[in-house]
């Protein structure tokens, strides 16, 4: 079903040759979204948790590719590093602490969560109706300071990437504050967990001998 829907744009793409680059990228986006949906349904259906962790890694890779296709390169970087790299490992270590298989849930208990998810999803879809079109030059995000950033970055900062210029220079103090917060959080975690646990191997050795 999903594949059949996704094949249709590809045949259109072969038919229209005026904008081959544009429509080919669009077909790739459709395919990525179809594979995302297929992965999500497979994750719901699967009971073996190791397989679910593997599929969540695939899901993160696919969504990162989709972010790149939508030009959100910085978000895609984060999704690839956190989603595909760290969170798969975190989920795996969570599985190591709990069970290997997911227990089946009673059918009566699934109705309320399903209803909540459907209501929230419908609300989100309703909210997207008011949003401006993708890449709309008159969208609120592009009219106020956005145009100023785009105009002034080449003279002010002389950095080719505008996102980098905004993050590192125009909002430099903001980024510095964020970095300090993240650094403090990491430092606090290390202090709470104990600095010796970084080299836990040595301590483990001492206990054994």
């Amino acid at each position: 079903m999903l594949l059949a829907e996704a094949v249709a744009p590809a045949s259109e793409l072969l038919a229209e040759s005026e904008f081959p680059g544009l429509s080919a990228a669009f077909a790739v986006e459709i395919f990525i979204l179809a594979m995302l949906a297929a992965t999500a349904f497979a994750m719901i259906r699967m009971r073996q948790l190791f397989g679910v962790a593997m599929l969540s890694g695939i899901y993160s890779l696919l969504s990162a590719a989709f972010f790149v296709a939508l030009d959100a390169v910085d978000v895609a970087f984060t999704e690839a590093a956190v989603g595909a790299g760290v969170s798969t490992v975190l989920v795996l270590s969570g599985i190591a602490l709990t069970a290997k298989r997911e227990l089946p849930v009673d059918r009566e208990r699934t109705f309320l969560p399903l209803a909540i998810v459907l209501v929230v999803g419908a609300a989100l879809v309703y909210a997207t109706i008011d949003m401006p079109a993708f890449g709309d030059p008159n969208a609120p995000a592009n009219v106020y300071v956005g145009a100023q950033y785009i105009e002034r970055t080449p003279e002010d900062i002389e950095v080719p990437n505008i996102v980098t210029a905004v993050l590192a220079s125009y909002r430099g103090f903001d980024t510095l504050g964020e970095t300090v917060v993240v650094f403090t959080a990491g430092l606090a975690c290390l202090l709470l967990l104990g600095a010796g646990s970084i080299r836990g191997g040595g301590r483990h050795d001492d206990e054994e001998h």
């Binding site: 593997m54 890694g57 890779l61 990162a64 790149v68 390169v73 895609a76 970087f77 690839a80 590093a81 595909a84 790299g85 798969t88 490992v89 795996l92 270590s93 190591a96």
Partner: peptide, 20 residues
């Protein structure tokens, strides 16, 4: 560049999964 970063992350993630 992003493709290169993905290649690195993919390698590390596979190592971590196999180690686990």
């Amino acid at each position: 560049d992003i493709a290169l970063l993905y290649a690195l992350i993919n390698f590390i993630a596979t190592i971590a999964i196999l180690k686990f």
